[in-house]
């Protein structure tokens, strides 16, 4: 029995969510192998060599893996799949895009977004925006799984034996799907899904410019900045700020929701945070039902005052 973990990376570094996925893999029986696909990704390989619990690295370095499309990666994984009992990727936009394609090619069902492993074939996952938890037993021979990173500890660097590295022949590029442009949000801040403090703004912020006052607070706290769907739809902040059922899931030590009403779709993405603070001028806003500390106030007064006092 062996577990294969797909190492999402940007050709420089392994994405933090992969480390949590390895944490999940360590709860399953058998060795863990790591697939690193990239282009000139030597530094990723070096990082991978140090990870605890990885016994083998499968390394595929090719020009068209600089920004690999699911059409190509799924065929590469298909060629390896028969060796594995479990195939895991983080439930990031990368993993969500890729793994169902793999599952269909090997003709199995996928188990999305697991938050708990009960046995090698039994998993818990949220459904209905986290309003219910389903415990599922898989009957498939190969279990194809995406992992909710916030629900698992990340694996540390190990000091055990260095893993074996096997070089793989890259599959030929699909000509039917090509990444033609990327427009990545630039930020000096910690990544939203792995930050220990997150400050999120909603429609109550009123405009993109007004997010400045949240940025100032985030600066003081070393926090990432997130948002509700309404704030993204209104164009205040980019799409990758969205926290929720259909955006990113976060579970920081401290989550501060500012001018966010607390719709179930938003709660789905942040209610596992350790400490939740809600700042809203409406005392009946549902966000207060999940908050450890609620402050009924006008955010335009409260936020600068908090920033000032830190």
């Amino acid at each position: 029995m062996t577990v294969l973990v797909i190492a999402e990376n940007d050709n420089q570094l392994i994405k933090p969510a992969v480390l949590n996925t390895l944490g999940a893999a360590s709860q399953l029986s058998g060795d863990t192998h790591l697939l690193v696909a990239g282009s000139n990704a030597g530094s990723v390989l070096e990082q991978a060599r140090k990870l605890a619990g990885v016994t083998k690295i499968l390394y595929a370095d090719a020009g068209h893996f600089e920004n690999p499309v699911a059409e190509d990666l799924s065929r590469l994984i298909l060629s390896l799949a028969s060796e594995y009992e479990h195939i895991l990727a983080p439930a990031t936009s990368f993993g969500k895009n890729l793994l169902p394609r793999v599952a269909a090619l090997i003709d199995v069902a996928q188990i999305s977004d697991i938050v708990k492993i009960e046995a090698d074939d039994t998993f818990v996952r949220p459904i209905y925006a986290g309003n219910a938890m389903a415990k599922i037993k898989s009957r498939d021979k190969t279990k194809v799984i995406t992992v909710r990173a916030t629900a698992f500890e990340s694996i540390m660097d190990g000091n055990g034996a260095a893993p074996v590295v096997e070089n793989l022949e890259a599959v030929s590029p699909s000509e039917k799907a090509v990444v033609s442009a990327q427009e990545l949000t630039k930020t000096e801040r910690p990544e939203l899904t792995s930050a220990s403090v997150v400050v999120s703004g909603g429609r109550g912020m009123g405009s993109g410019e007004n997010f400045d006052i949240l940025e100032k607070l985030a600066d003081k706290l070393g926090a990432a900045v997130g948002a509700s769907r309404a704030a993204v739809d209104s164009g205040y902040v980019p799409n990758d700020y969205q926290v929720g059922q259909t955006g990113k899931v976060v579970a920081p030590e401290l989550y501060i929701a500012v001018g966010i009403s607390g719709a179930i779709q938003h709660l789905a993405g942040m209610k596992d945070s350790k400490v939740i603070v809600a700042i809203n001028k409406d005392p009946d806003a549902p966000i207060f039902s999940v908050a450890d500390y609620g402050l009924v106030a006008d955010l335009f007064e409260a936020i600068p005052e908090i920033t000032e006092s830190l």
Binding site: N67, V179, S180, A181, Q182, E183, D240
Partner: peptide, 8 residues
């Protein structure tokens, strides 16, 4: 995508 936007 998680980091922003991508065109395919």
């Amino acid at each position: 995508i998680d980091g922003g936007l991508e065109t395919v």
